[in-house]
Simulated assay, not measured.
Amino acid sequence: MRPLEPDDPRTIGDYRLLRRLGAGGMGRVYLGRTTGGRTVAVKVVHPHFAEQPDFRHRFHREIAAARRVQGTWTAPVLDADPDATIPWIATGYVAGPSLAQAIDHHGPLPLRTVRALGAGLAEALRAVHSADLLHRDVKPPNVLLAPDGPKLIDFGIARAREGTTTVTATGAAVGSPGFMSPEQVLAQPLTPATDLFSLGAVLAYAATGNAPFTG
């Protein structure tokens, strides 16, 4: 978590932005707060995505699908504005380090903890797949370790299963090297098995402190 930078917005929708939580391929993520005091995570997409002709249509569809994801082990979608000049989405804020941060600071997890992590994330993926979504980017930074268990976050590149492909409008494969399934790397059609492959890679990382693939 870092202070806001000069070019960061101070408000998005009805949310006052407090800190920068991180950044990724789709946009920047901020810690925000409602006027009533609720803390949320607000993801603001990069401006160049908003300029792509088909982006808003996909974003509308993906938000509608993500709202259907209901589960103990996921961060719920609370609000969104895909029609804003710079589209954004707000999700529940999870107070806890990412799996990547935990491994960096404390090393591999005990086997019993890895098993509990796997059980929680498997339930999270079942909720995602039940909503006809694929996450497509299951990786240690997208797993947060909350006091009540792991939370799978960042559906920013999740796509509805119907018509799902592995490439962006620029032809680049979507995912994170080291945790992508072979079909993602080869730009082949994806199924829920893609997310399960990535889950296995994440659990291997949690148990050993090293990603099972180097790139």
Rank of each mutant, 00 (worst) to 15 (best):
G37I: 12
F213M: 10
A172H: 13
A50Y: 07
G209Y: 07
P108H: 05
T113I: 05
P82D: 01
N210Q: 15
W88F: 10
I103N: 03
E5P: 08
A84I: 03
T191K: 06
H105Y: 01
L125K: 10
T11N: 10
L186E: 15
D8A: 08
F179E: 00
V77C: 06
G27Q: 04
T164H: 04
A122P: 07
L111D: 00
G200V: 12
A66L: 15
G71H: 03
P141E: 00
A158E: 03
V185E: 04
R67S: 07
L125G: 07
A211M: 01
R33W: 02
A65H: 12
T113Y: 04
D137A: 02
T72E: 12
S198C: 10
L203M: 12
E123A: 14
V114I: 09
L133T: 07
A201N: 08
A124D: 00
V143K: 01
Q52M: 13
P9E: 10
L196K: 09
G36E: 08
E51R: 14
G178R: 06
A84E: 03
L21Y: 10
V44N: 04
K151P: 05
L125H: 10
P108A: 04
F49H: 03
A102Q: 13
D8Q: 12
R112A: 15
L31N: 01
D137H: 03
P97H: 01
D104M: 06
T74F: 00
K151M: 09
A201P: 05
R67I: 04
A206G: 08
A207G: 09
T72P: 05
I153V: 14
T85M: 08
I153S: 10
F179I: 03
I89A: 05
V167W: 05
G171F: 14
P147Q: 09
I63Y: 08
F55A: 00
H129E: 13
V69A: 01
G149Y: 03
R16C: 08
S130I: 00
N210D: 13
V42R: 09
P182V: 14
L18G: 03
H57I: 08
P108L: 00
R159E: 09
A116P: 00
P141I: 02
D148H: 14
A127Y: 15
T34P: 01
T208R: 06
R58G: 08
V69N: 03
H48Y: 15
G22E: 01
R10Q: 10
P97I: 01
L144F: 10
A169R: 15
G24R: 11
V94N: 05
L111C: 01
D83S: 06
G120A: 11
R16P: 02
V114W: 12
A187F: 09
I89E: 11
P82W: 12
P189L: 02
G178A: 03
T11E: 15
L186A: 15
V40A: 13
A50P: 06
D8L: 11
M1Q: 06
M1K: 07
N210I: 09
R16Q: 12
P192C: 00
P3K: 08
L134C: 05
V40P: 06
G163F: 11
R136A: 04
V138G: 02
Q70C: 11
L21G: 07
G209K: 10
R56D: 07
G27Y: 05
G27T: 06
A169T: 15
R56S: 08
V202N: 06
Y15W: 15
G27I: 05
A64Y: 05
Y15G: 00
L111H: 09
